[in-house]
């Protein structure tokens, strides 16, 4: 027996009986940030590669969702803050050692870029749209002229955004489940995969759909490899990380993780996509929704379970 009891009656809300300072806002933001990163990555990538005509959904239409996802995600982040009126303090400093600080700055840069990018295609989407003011037409002309520069900035920022959602968690060495450098690449892969799923879902063009189906398959395979690698790393590590892994290998998150994230969120959509690529009729919405659902569940489970894991002494 090794029992630790707080006998002075500590009941600090958010800490006792176990840490629960982050609620639904953070995992929702991590998911939406990943989706936006995925969408903007493919948008910029295929614009830079000059595939605007062949892949209109990826370059033009899907990117309209990115600013929406970012704004909802930022609002969720704002809701998470407990000292809300001081949020601007984030932008009075740059702290290299704090992933949250450079994440905040990345969002500050990529959100307006995502808006500008969508605005430059708005009149193609809605031909009747009128900007009303001449200055806005001039601005539109300017951004259309510099689309390539914006695409290069967005592709770099989207990778940073996608990977930072994982690094944010992995920087907390007090939470053994998060404290692995694999979390950054894993969250990036998952974010790209959810972005690709949305493009696949929205696309009307068969070739474009097939391309993003294949991209998604590669990303799902990478994600599965990372997850296996994650558990191998935990089980070969210290007691606290073995305990963290055991939450998923028989512990309280076993069913939710293996059923919702692995089976429904990765394996089943991958199977359906293979069937579709082989020529079977599968409604594209089903694998896409499953991937998005799996990505959302993955972040909720990681944030929830990570807060339970801790050092023992």
């Amino acid at each position: 027996m090794n029992e630790e009891l707080i006998v002075s009656g500590r009941m600090n809300p958010g800490i006792d009986p176990y840490l629960h300072i982050w609620h639904w806002q953070i995992p929702l933001y991590l998911f939406l940030g990943g989706v936006a990163a995925g969408l903007l990555f493919f948008t910029s990538l295929y614009y830079i590669l000059g595939k605007e005509k062949e892949l209109p959904t990826a370059v033009k239409w899907a990117s309209f969702l990115a600013p929406v996802a970012l704004v909802i995600g930022l609002f969720a982040l704002f809701l998470d803050l407990k000292h809300k009126l001081f949020f601007w303090q984030l932008y009075t400093t740059i702290r290299i050692s704090s992933p949250m600080s450079w994440g905040a700055w990345t969002l500050m840069l990529i959100t307006p870029l995502a808006f500008v990018w969508s605005a430059s295609y708005l009149r193609e989407l809605v031909p009747a749209w009128d900007w009303k003011l001449k200055i806005l037409y001039d601005f539109e002309k300017l951004i259309i002229k510099y689309r390539k520069v914006i695409a290069w900035m967005m592709i770099i920022l989207s990778i940073i955004l996608g990977i930072y959602t994982g690094i944010l968690l992995s920087a907390f060495n007090a939470r053994p489940l998060w404290n692995t450098s694999l979390l950054g690449p894993l969250f990036l892969t998952s974010g790209l995969s959810t972005g690709a799923a949305i493009i696949m879902w929205m696309s009307k063009d068969h070739a474009e759909r097939a391309l993003f189906s294949k991209i998604d398959l590669i990303l799902i395979a990478t994600e599965l490899f990372f997850i296996i690698h994650l558990f191998m790393g935990f089980l070969a590590s210290t007691q606290v990380q073995i305990n963290a892994a055991e939450l998923f290998l028989g512990g309280e998150f076993t069913v939710s993780f293996w059923v919702f994230v692995i089976l429904l969120g990765l394996v089943l959509p991958a199977f359906l996509e293979v069937l579709e690529l082989r020529g079977y009729k599968v409604p594209v919405a089903i694998p896409a929704i499953l991937i998005l659902f799996g990505g959302l569940m993955f972040r909720f489970i990681m944030v929830e379970a990570g807060q339970i894991t801790r050092y023992l002494y």
Binding site: L19, K84, F172, A174, R310
Partner: peptide, 21 residues
Amino acid sequence: NNKCIGCGACIESCPYDARYS
């Protein structure tokens, strides 16, 4: 206090759970 935004990062990062909101 006037610089703190209450994001909870420090609470998550403390191995001793010594901070509270």
